[in-house]
């Protein structure tokens, strides 16, 4: 015991300490300690402010929908629905205007498809590798690299497509292939969405419990059999969801396809020709000074609405798949 301690614990000195404690409180404590007045005005104000910030996201959604619907309705007041959805010819900037959205959907679909063809094998293999084969140290390096790759600006990928990929494609398929073509844009879009598939699928695969793997190993399976026949099927919903999300991202991808895809809204063209996606069309019309009352301005929103509905549907489906088909493990 040092000098500061007034007495042995438990003795009368403790009582004085205790009464001191009580006295300290009695003197200094604010009154009104009863009743329900503690959720103060300030507390309620903060609660309300936080509530508002949370509802802001709902307002953003409402704002997007309203903005899109408003101009889209304006557009369909001038152009009948059948000319938009029933035609495959697009020539918004010519004198004789045609607004067949299928020309843009074709380009979008083709690039997304090429992207998925590139990304699904790469992404899934990366996921299987990371989750089943990679030692922790390799994983600790590769995973952050994938994350950084996911953060590379899309305009950089556009540059890459134009300057690096296109010349290679021209070397392979002949010089009559244009610098701007769907294939090069699709390949870089594929590279872009590899991290999404790899990262999300890997999460799903790691969520498969060890016991399942050990059960398969105990039957004498090889590591590959465990990976492909046990882990991948068990994580299937997550894998599918990741692919749908990646597809949605490919559909909404803008800058790379604007730079490398060319500006040729044509229905039915092949992968070695220039195409135009919905997003690229929006950029093209945004770059010019389009008067806000013109039909070109309004069609911007009609196309954006189509794009919005398409990607939203894909996201919802992805969420549904991952929820609906998720295997529940202990």
């Amino acid at each position: 015991m040092t000098a500061q301690v007034p007495g042995p614990p438990g003795g009368p000195a403790q009582d004085s300490v205790r009464s001191l404690l009580a006295e300290l409180w009695r003197e200094r404590l604010q009154p009104s300690r009863t009743g329900s007045g503690r959720e103060t005005a300030a507390g309620r104000l903060i609660h309300g402010a936080l509530f508002l910030t949370a509802t802001l996201s709902a307002f953003v959604t409402i704002g997007i929908v309203l903005v899109l619907i408003f101009e889209t309705v304006e557009f369909f007041r001038e152009i009948p629905l059948i000319d938009f959805f029933g035609s495959t010819k697009w020539s918004a900037l010519f004198a004789e205007k045609q607004f067949g959205v299928w020309a843009l959907v074709w380009g979008t679909g083709m690039i997304a498809l090429i992207g998925l063809i590139v990304a699904i094998p790469l992404g899934l293999m990366a996921a299987v590798f990371l989750s089943e084969y990679a030692p922790p140290r390799v994983r600790a390096v590769v995973k952050p690299i994938l994350e950084v790759l996911a953060g590379v600006p899309t305009v950089v990928f556009g540059y890459f497509a134009l300057v690096s990929v296109s010349p290679v494609i021209r070397d392979i398929f002949g010089q009559d292939v244009g610098i701007y073509n769907a294939l090069s844009a699709g390949i870089v879009v594929g590279l872009m969405i590899v991290p999404i598939i790899a990262s999300l699928s890997e999460d799903a695969m790691r969520a498969v419990p060890r016991s399942l793997r050990e059960g398969a190993y105990a039957l004498g399976s090889t590591r590959m059999e465990v990976s492909l026949r046990v882990v991948v099927p068990a994580a299937f919903s997550g894998v599918v969801a990741s692919i749908i999300l990646a597809a949605s991202r490919a559909v909404g991808e803008t800058m790379a396809v604007t730079i490398a895809g060319g500006g040729n809204p044509q229905f039915g063209v092949g992968p070695l020709e220039a195409v135009q996606t919905m997003t690229a069309m929006i950029v093209q019309l945004s770059l010019g000074d389009t008067p806000t009352t013109s039909i070109e301005f309004k069609v911007l929103f009609a196309v954006a609405m189509t794009l919005f509905v398409l990607t939203l549907a894909m996201n919802v489906v992805a969420q549904w798949v991952s929820r609906r088909f998720r295997e529940e493990y202990e």
Binding site: V5, P9, L21
Partner: peptide, 10 residues
């Protein structure tokens, strides 16, 4: 005082 009460002060 609180730490003393809780026999932790020393």
């Amino acid at each position: 005082d609180a730490l003393r009460r809780a026999a932790l002060w020393d």
